[in-house]
Design a binder for these strands. Structure first.
Lengths: 135, 135
DNA sequence: AGCTTTTTACGAAATACTTCGTAGACAAAG
DNA sequence: CTTTGTCTACGAAGTATTTCGTAAAAAGCT
């Protein structure tokens, strides 16, 4: 199995906001990211710049500096980042019980019929998988 | 509907660790909580004391100061705290989609057959509830 | 060319959170 | 009574994160 990242990906809250923009829109300039963030809340341009520079240092983002205006790309995928944050969150808040988390999330959410069906399908899949592997 | 807490409950990571002890063991002294924490990692006594004092100020805990050794009790329930943290986490990490979170949590399954059955039962319940309300 | 705007770099202030040292009160033990 | 230990209070240092001001370089404009 290829491990593209040996270290744990742990973006801070602000870094995560920026990653969301990069994941959604792809490679972007600081200006663009800052504009996106400012649709939700006021953030100074240099604040965003600094954060993105730090993210590049940390390896959360990569940047193309061949032009005067640098282009930043996410260096981690959304799925792996979510997985890491989720694991950490479950450990902290639900003492490691992913099931408790699922129950709580399901219980308090207005899930549509379609969504519930989706989950049921997934459960089916997991169960089948389990039997096949004789787990 | 009675709102026991108008403000959002947002314990920090350290505060959450302490709350876990209080939820599990009920009203406790600083000494007891500190001993519990030290089973996992080294923490100074005054560190725990300070945190618990802050928690009392913030309203996360209550304390009985009638004796020299104060007794601290949780002032928030485990369920409501988990719910608040969960909502916040889903917003941040899954852009508000609880379903994505559930799918991801389930997908990384170490779920046992029994746990999956539990979830299926919960889904059944939600679906029945939904039909009853003709939602 | 001269002025304005945009961008990066740098550093430091501001904020949030965690940790601990020290002091004083009180209690327990000898 | 004196010594030793435990507890609270307080403040401040340490660390992580966020925010921004300023400067210099590059680009755009008139």
């Amino acid at each position: 199995m290829i491990m593209s990242q040996s270290k744990k990906i742990r973006p801070t809250e602000s870094e995560l906001e920026i990653l969301q923009v990069l994941w959604e829109h792809g490679p972007s300039t600081v200006r663009f990211v800052n504009d996106q963030l400012n649709e939700d809340r006021e953030v100074g341009y240099t604040t965003t710049l600094k954060l993105m520079q730090i993210m590049a240092e940390k390896g959360l983002a990569e940047r193309d500096t061949s032009q005067r205006t640098h282009i930043y790309s996410p260096a981690v995928t959304e799925a792996e980042t979510q997985q890491n944050l989720l694991t950490q969150f479950v450990d902290r808040t639900f003492k490691g019980s992913a099931m408790k988390l699922v129950m709580q999330a399901l219980g308090n959410h207005n899930a549509s019929e379609a969504e519930l069906d989706e989950i049921k399908a997934l459960i089916e899949e997991i169960e089948t998988e389990g039997r096949r592997k004789n787990k």
